[in-house]
Structure formats: C-alpha cells, structure tokens
C-alpha cells in the first residue's frame, strides 16, 4: 500500500511541473509589461527598463521558467505580487482558510441534503417524491450558481433582510454562500446517489439478501448502501477538491476573501505572479485531494484493497 502511495506521489511531480509550465507560459504571453505594471503607468521609461533588467524579464523564456521553478522548490518562493509587493505564498495562505471553510460547509450541506434524498428517490423510484426530487435536482444542476447567488441575495438580504450579502467573518455571513454552493453540489450528489443506488439494488446479491429472509431496511442499509456509497464517496471528494479552487464565481459574488476571488482580481489587475502561484497552489491541492480520494477508495472497497496489498 505504501508503495502505491509513494508511486502516486512521484507521478504528481511531472503533472505539477506541467501545470506550472502551462500557467507560466500563459502568463508570459498575456499582454502587459510586468515592470510597467509594478511601477505604474506614469513611471519613466528609464526606470521601467532598469526594473526589467533587475528582474531578469529580458532573459529567455526557459531561463525565466527554470528560475521560477528553482525558487519555488528551493526557497518556497513563488514570487511577489506586482501590486502589493507582498509574497505570493503569504497572500494565498491568508486567503486559503476562507476557501477551505466555504468548501467544507458547502460539502456538508450537499451531503446532508443530497444523500438521503438520493436514497429515498432510488428506493421509491417513479413515486411523486422521486419525480419532484429529480426535477428539482436537475434544475439545481442547470442553474448558474452565480445567478443563484444573486437571487439568494435578492431574497434573503434585500427583501427579507435576514442575512448579510458580502464578507465572510461571522457565521451569518457564511450561510448564503454555503447554501449557494451547497445546493448546487447537492443536486449533483442527489443524482449520483440515486443512480448508484438504482444500479446496486438491481444486483443479484440484493436478491440473495432478501432470499435469506432479511428485513428490507437492512437490505437497503447493510447491503445496498454499503456498495452504493463507494462511487459516491469519490464524487464527494472530487467535488470538495474542485471547490477548493473552483468556487471562483460564488466567492466573487459574496465577496468571500478566498483564493478563487484572489485569482479573478489578480487576472484583472494583471498581477501575474499571484495568478501563477495561485493556480499552482490550487493544482497541487486538487491533486492531493484526488490522491486522498483514491486511497480512501481503496480502504472502502475490499476489491481494490486487495490489488494494492
């Protein structure tokens, strides 16, 4: 098992390197002169030229890339923001807790709503509950979550005045963003749970369990669920990983000071080091979450566990 984990970790390295390369390339070719951005539009040309030389911005592409990788690996330095001059890593780490919080809350809401609904839908297939749940879930998946966020602000902040619409420091602030993310993710989880349960209930071993004289509730819980949850856990993990860097739009709407919003702001202000460092950070985190999900999968499914013994 440990060899498997080690191997996966090693395989992460070229992927991370590749991500760094791609994002570095994209930032390199994005229009905008870093030196001029740092010094401001009004700065003198001579100053700009001098800064470019200082920062090595005229060196060949690969040299710059190599330098970036070396700094990142050896000194844990992924650059400084052009606009605020603070280290990128520091910027990201101050933002990460909010994103983590939002993602965790969102997933919790999603699981609490999604899994029971999916189970009931599956066991009572074609019933009224099932049909309504499926329509609602499909609407949830179809609704752009930035629009949903706006509508929720409209209803709960503007009309009802119950909850604040931006910021993230008090629990009250966290409700709307968590609900926005939570309900969209819940829709996905409901559909997945339902289809996984439906598939499992049709299996022969469920018939065997009934033929033993087992009560229906235990057939569902002990036999069906245990099998159905395996792929669902994967989906939950992947969604969580995605939310750690992909909740860009929700963070923007609710002014959550998270990593995603940092990315959007930095792209707008052409603050390349932050974008580079941020995407790198997100990619690393996402890859780690994927790895953990895979390992978890091996723990939960005895067939996979045997493969890696």
């Amino acid at each position: 098992m440990h060899k498997y984990i080690l191997r996966r970790l090693l395989m992460l390295i070229p992927v991370i390197l590749g991500v760094t390369f791609i994002i570095f390339t994209m930032m390199y070719f994005t229009p905008g002169d870093p030196a001029r951005i740092m010094l401001g539009e009004a700065a003198a040309e001579a100053d700009v030229i001098r800064l470019r030389a200082e920062l090595g911005l005229d060196d060949p592409f690969l040299v710059q890339f190599g330098r970036y990788v070396k700094d990142a690996v050896v000194h844990q330095d992924i650059g400084r923001s052009y606009t605020t001059k603070r280290p990128v890593l520091e910027l990201i780490m101050t933002r990460f807790p909010s994103t983590l919080n939002l993602a965790a809350l969102g997933i919790m809401v999603a699981v609490i709503i999604g899994i029971p609904t999916g189970i009931i839908s599956a066991t009572k297939q074609y019933s009224l509950f099932d049909n309504v749940a499926m329509v609602v879930a499909l609407l949830g998946v179809s609704m752009p979550n930035f629009w949903q966020g706006l509508m929720m602000i409209l209803v709960f902040s503007v009309y009802l005045g119950w909850l604040p619409s931006s910021g993230f420091n008090t629990p009250a602030h966290m409700v709307l963003p968590a609900l926005t993310i939570g309900t969209s993710t819940a829709a996905i989880i409901t559909r997945m749970t339902r289809s996984s349960m439906l598939e499992v209930i049709r299996q022969d071993y469920i018939r065997t369990a009934r033929a033993k004289g087992q009560v229906e509730s235990k057939v569902i819980n002990r036999h069906a669920l245990k099998n159905a949850l395996i792929p669902i856990i994967t989906v939950i993990g992947l969604q969580f990983g995605y939310l750690l860097g992909g909740a860009v739009l929700t963070e923007s709407i609710f002014a959550v000071p998270g990593v995603g919003r940092l990315m959007v702001d930095s792209i707008r202000s052409r603050d390349f080091p932050v974008v580079q460092g941020g995407v790198l950070f997100i990619a690393v985190t996402f890859s780690f979450v994927n790895l953990i999900v895979d390992i978890l999968y091996a723990f939960v499914d005895p067939r996979i566990r045997s493969q890696y013994k």
Binding site: D204, Y205, T208, A209, A211, N227, V300, D301, P302
Partner: peptide, 11 residues
C-alpha cells in the same frame, strides 16, 4: 441462484 459471481455481496 444461477450466477455465483454476482450472488455474493462484494463488501
């Protein structure tokens, strides 16, 4: 039942 491969609960 007929198919032993699928009659037992894998987990």
């Amino acid at each position: 039942f007929q198919d032993p491969m699928t009659s037992l609960n894998p987990v």
